[in-house]
């Protein structure tokens, strides 16, 4: 067995993969969140749609996005491999098991939480990512008066237009783009999708509340001052703040934009 193989076939090596992919995915979440915060702007989706175009067409980001897809797959795959081994390590289960006495519920159910997140991901991707790339998304034209800053919005049927443009004409900035913003708000008219999204974000919160600090522990990070900081970031930012903001989006759409 090669050295490399030896490392990644060890239990610690496999956990290293979970840790690194996990941290990368956490970072992605931050970027994703920052972008998605444009949804809260009341500009008819101008900023959001421009951001969506940028994210899908800027080459380095595109490249990273492929890495991201691979990371998702590796993270999920290795969780299966690790879980398989861990199940095998205890062929006979305890008849009476009181896990709550010694560990948190989420730390013991990362697989379940991960599965919920995976289902969410599939739904989420098919709702928006697939639609955006290959679906029938309408176009929208934004005309912004440069002097006043006022923007007018005009829908363009998909049949009439197939590209993204942004130019200045007659003192106005005109942008035509796929209207993902509308697509988002359209989807969140359905209450059960909103509920599902919120629940998925709860799952994400639990997953990250354990996962983030756990990733650092796996890397061997154990500083008497900074390790508690990591734990705090993991809990408050990744476990609560980020999922909360994400969950606020469908709620905002449902209760504010769509009402």
């Amino acid at each position: 067995m090669s050295r490399f193989n030896q490392l990644f076939s060890s239990t610690i090596g496999k956990k290293l993969i979970m840790s690194l992919t996990g941290i990368f995915l956490s970072l992605f979440l931050v970027v994703h969140l920052v972008g998605n915060l444009q949804l809260f702007k009341s500009d008819g989706g101008l900023a959001f749609n421009e951001y969506a175009y940028f994210m899908t067409h800027f080459a380095p980001i595109k490249a990273i996005s492929y890495l991201l897809y691979a990371t998702f797959i590796v993270h999920a795959l290795y969780s299966l491999i690790i879980t398989y081994r861990n199940r095998k390590a205890r062929p006979i289960a305890y008849a009476s098991y009181n896990g709550a006495a010694n560990s948190t519920w989420n730390s013991r159910n990362m697989g379940l939480l991960g599965t919920i997140i995976l289902i969410f991901l599939v739904t989420h991707m098919s709702n928006f990512w697939y639609q955006y790339h290959w679906g029938d998304v309408p176009y929208v034209e934004y005309t912004t008066n440069i002097q006043t800053g006022e923007t007018s919005v005009r829908d363009i049927p998909a049949a009439e237009f197939h590209d993204f443009v942004k130019y200045i004409e007659d003192g106005s900035e005109i942008m035509i783009a796929k209207d993902l913003y509308k697509e988002v708000n359209f989807s969140f008219q359905s209450w059960y999708l909103v509920v599902f999204y919120v629940l998925a974000m709860v799952a994400l919160g639990f997953h990250l509340a354990h996962g983030f600090k756990s990733a650092f522990q796996t890397l061997g990070f154990d500083h008497n001052r900074y390790a508690p900081l990591i734990r705090a970031i993991g809990f408050w930012i990744f476990g609560i703040l980020i999922p909360l903001l994400f969950a606020a989006m469908p709620l905002y759409s449902f209760f504010v934009v769509n009402s």
Partner: peptide, 21 residues
């Protein structure tokens, strides 16, 4: 670690149950 893996122990998922018990 190599020997630990050979013996068939599972991998650590940092639940902290060991420390608590």
């Amino acid at each position: 670690v190599d020997q630990m893996d050979k013996e068939g122990f599972g991998s650590c998922t940092n639940t902290g149950a060991c420390e608590a018990e």
